[in-house]
Design a protein around this nucleic acid. Sequence first.
RNA 1: GGCCCGUUAGUCAAGUGGCCAAGACGUCGCCCUCUCACGGCGAAGGCAGGGGUUCGACUCCCCUACGGGUCACCA
Length: 546
Amino acid sequence: MDTNLLAELLYPNIKTLPEDIEARYPKRNLPEGAKVTRLAPSPTGFLHIGNLYGALTDERLAHTSGGVFYLRIEDTDAKRTVPNGIAIIIETLAKLGVNFDEGAVIDGDKGDYGPYRQSDRAEIYQTYAKQLIREGKAYPCFCTEQELEAIRTKQEENKLTTGYYGEFAIWRDAPMDKIQEKLNEGVPFVLRFRSEGSVNNKFKFNDQIKGDIDVTENDIDHVILKSDGIPTYHFAHAVDDHLMGTTHVVRDESWLSTLPFHIQLFKALGFKMPKYCHTAQALKLDNGNKRKISKRKDPEFGLAYYHAQGYPVSAVREYLLTMLNSNFEEWRLANPDLPLEDFKFTTKKMSVSGFLFDLDKLNDISKNVISRMTADEVYDFTLAWAKENDEPFAKLLESNREYAVRILSIGRGGKKPRKDIALWSEVKNYVSFFYDELFERIDSIPENFDKNDVYAVLESFKNSYDENAEQSEWLNNIKVIAENNGFCPDMKQYKADPDAFKGSVADVSMFLRIAVTGRMNSPDLYEVMQILGREKVIGRVFDFKE
RNA sequence: GGCCCGUUAGUCAAGUGGCCAAGACGUCGCCCUCUCACGGCGAAGGCAGGGGUUCGACUCCCCUACGGGUCACCA
């Protein structure tokens, strides 16, 4: 078999040689230890929490080592291409603070190692493919879909491993004249890798996350170039990551099964292998069982969802980081105010097993993150969210920034800040009673209180409210009102003998709280009244009596 | 089915032969307290099972079970 002739026959239009390509991709000039990582999505435009998990791993690995993080688009399958898919991916990630140094951008490329869309790299792949043919490491296969299907059926019937290998690899050693014949007939062909592996050979391979794993050699002659001359993922992965200088390949652990093939490919092409980081998968509880999150079935895990819900970007990042590195949480506890960029990220602290997404945990982290913000920050973030999701509320916030910031300042700062906002979408409800446009009477006074007592208390309050009083004076006044109306001013005393009173100062406060805010619970009533102002406070108390 | 990965409480997890098996979230209770939130204290809850190796196994080895992944001209 004259493999040089075969190569010319198959890809006559490819004049470039691997050396020519190599010359276009010089070694990256980076400091010692710098990691080059990439995100390589297909342009479906959909990203879920598991994708972010991987993306953040890539991003942190590169950016904590002085390396490069780039975006490559794996658009070799037309079925996976969605209009604007690339733009959506870039924008979604940008919102979550994941930014690329290099690679595909919305309307082109940025960087010296492109093109970054695989659809623009056909010549490159074919150049390497042609070289493999010359070296006898790849061959054409003219099987039709039906023929392959028949082979598979036969293998299944005989309980054999399915695939194109051994005696089933019917074109593997086909003579030149048969190939020539098919070519003359214009029959389309795929290019297959000639595997020299055997399933009887096992070896260890070190993964950066999983550690040593057992690998069985691949003996299947996988397709490397499809009949349209476009590579499969496997081939594109080897060629691209080699040329683009990727040092660390971060990908989902479902790729573990094709790792043996990838190892063969790198060897056959004479490429140095990158390090591999196979990450655990994001799982979902489905009928009591855990299963991999899927794009199609689980839209609620889509990143767009969290954004629309109003989770702060930093909270999502903090949450993911606690999942990513088991020591992050501890670090954050010790360094509540440091930017998370200061955390020393490492694959050594990554989990090997799949994880369930924990909304409770995210909410908790989010509350903590927001509690550390200033009122102005909370205002700005809430406004930005509202502009996208709740225009009327945005208008309301904008109508009086100072007022809104005062509201958001309640219980903020200090050692024990309030932590009752987890989502920007919750702010509206949180501040609603400060705005007449949003004010609603939600809770009412429990039945067991005598209405006349309630009214008497409110009347006393109306007559004695002094908006210029300090907080302690204000509270004293509430206690006086309590006492004058038969309610116990001291909680300890009340608890010792509750039957001796109509109620306690706590109940008096409750009447006022319900009258003024429309609800049973609120932040500090004194501060609430200060912000509302005398007119509104008295007005609401008056309204309540009506 | 073959191959591969995994299995510490409801969830996320520390643990690397010597513990009474950390911590966080969630749950429950108590305290603080004008309510809520915060904060403090406390409780319940776990090494999948069985064999080895060892003076001693969550930690090492084997088997079983269970879960997950993958077996395309998709990535």
